[in-house]
Deep mutational scan, measured.
Amino acid sequence: MEQGTVKWFNAEKGSGFIERENGDDVFVHFSAIQGDGFKSLDEGQAVTFDVEEGQRGPQAANVQKA
């Protein structure tokens, strides 16, 4: 798993970007967020995640709040 920080997340659209510790920013969709309840992330929040190849390039998967 990688570690990173939420660069921004739009709760209305359900997507945003995570700033990786090593590498380019990666797209995140709300469906990749693990946990119960409303799936959203806050700017500056620390997260851990896997990276998968999506239709438009790398994207975060199995996102967990650190």
Results as ranks from 00 to 15, higher is better:
residue 1 M to W: 10
residue 2 E to H: 15
residue 2 E to V: 11
residue 2 E to C: 14
residue 2 E to D: 07
residue 2 E to S: 10
residue 3 Q to A: 11
residue 3 Q to E: 09
residue 3 Q to G: 08
residue 3 Q to W: 15
residue 4 G to I: 02
residue 4 G to L: 00
residue 5 T to G: 02
residue 5 T to W: 15
residue 5 T to P: 00
residue 5 T to I: 14
residue 6 V to S: 01
residue 7 K to L: 05
residue 7 K to I: 06
residue 7 K to P: 00
residue 7 K to Y: 04
residue 7 K to T: 05
residue 7 K to Q: 03
residue 8 W to D: 00
residue 8 W to M: 05
residue 8 W to K: 05
residue 8 W to T: 05
residue 8 W to V: 05
residue 11 A to S: 11
residue 11 A to K: 15
residue 11 A to R: 14
residue 12 E to L: 14
residue 13 K to I: 11
residue 13 K to T: 12
residue 13 K to A: 09
residue 13 K to H: 11
residue 13 K to Q: 09
residue 14 G to C: 08
residue 14 G to D: 02
residue 14 G to R: 02
residue 14 G to F: 04
residue 14 G to A: 03
residue 14 G to T: 03
residue 14 G to H: 00
residue 15 S to E: 12
residue 15 S to N: 10
residue 15 S to L: 15
residue 15 S to T: 14
residue 16 G to A: 03
residue 16 G to P: 02
residue 17 F to N: 01
residue 17 F to V: 09
residue 17 F to A: 02
residue 17 F to C: 10
residue 18 I to C: 06
residue 19 E to V: 14
residue 19 E to G: 11
residue 19 E to A: 15
residue 19 E to W: 14
residue 19 E to I: 14
residue 19 E to T: 15
residue 20 R to M: 08
residue 21 E to I: 11
residue 22 N to Y: 11
residue 22 N to A: 09
residue 22 N to R: 10
residue 23 G to H: 07
residue 24 D to I: 12
residue 24 D to A: 14
residue 25 D to R: 09
residue 25 D to P: 08
residue 25 D to T: 11
residue 26 V to F: 05
residue 27 F to K: 00
residue 27 F to W: 09
residue 28 V to D: 02
residue 28 V to T: 04
residue 28 V to I: 08
residue 29 H to W: 06
residue 29 H to S: 05
residue 29 H to L: 07
residue 29 H to V: 04
residue 30 F to Q: 03
residue 30 F to N: 00
residue 31 S to M: 06
residue 31 S to A: 07
residue 31 S to R: 10
residue 32 A to V: 06
residue 32 A to C: 06
residue 33 I to N: 02
residue 33 I to C: 06
residue 34 Q to M: 13
residue 34 Q to E: 09
residue 35 G to I: 09
residue 35 G to Y: 08
residue 36 D to N: 12
residue 37 G to T: 07
residue 37 G to K: 05
residue 38 F to E: 07
residue 38 F to P: 09
residue 38 F to D: 08
residue 38 F to Q: 06
residue 38 F to L: 07
residue 39 K to N: 05
residue 39 K to C: 08
residue 39 K to R: 12
residue 39 K to F: 06
residue 40 S to R: 09
residue 40 S to D: 05
residue 41 L to F: 04
residue 41 L to D: 02
residue 42 D to Y: 15
residue 42 D to M: 15
residue 43 E to Q: 15
residue 44 G to K: 06
residue 44 G to F: 05
residue 44 G to A: 04
residue 45 Q to E: 13
residue 45 Q to V: 09
residue 45 Q to T: 09
residue 45 Q to Y: 05
residue 45 Q to S: 08
residue 46 A to C: 14
residue 46 A to Y: 13
residue 46 A to N: 09
residue 47 V to F: 04
residue 47 V to E: 02
residue 47 V to I: 05
residue 48 T to Y: 12
residue 48 T to K: 08
residue 48 T to Q: 09
residue 49 F to M: 03
residue 49 F to N: 00
residue 49 F to V: 00
residue 49 F to D: 01
residue 50 D to T: 15
residue 50 D to P: 00
residue 50 D to F: 14
residue 50 D to E: 13
residue 51 V to F: 07
residue 51 V to R: 04
residue 51 V to H: 01
residue 52 E to T: 12
residue 52 E to F: 14
residue 53 E to K: 10
residue 53 E to Y: 14
residue 54 G to M: 07
residue 54 G to F: 07
residue 54 G to V: 06
residue 55 Q to N: 11
residue 55 Q to G: 11
residue 55 Q to V: 14
residue 55 Q to T: 13
residue 56 R to W: 15
residue 56 R to H: 13
residue 57 G to R: 06
residue 57 G to C: 06
residue 58 P to Q: 09
residue 58 P to V: 09
residue 59 Q to E: 08
residue 59 Q to S: 07
residue 59 Q to L: 08
residue 59 Q to G: 03
residue 59 Q to A: 07
residue 60 A to I: 02
residue 60 A to D: 03
residue 60 A to R: 00
residue 61 A to H: 09
residue 61 A to G: 07
residue 63 V to I: 06
residue 63 V to G: 00
residue 64 Q to T: 10
residue 64 Q to P: 02
residue 64 Q to E: 08
residue 65 K to C: 09
residue 65 K to S: 10
residue 66 A to E: 09
residue 66 A to C: 13
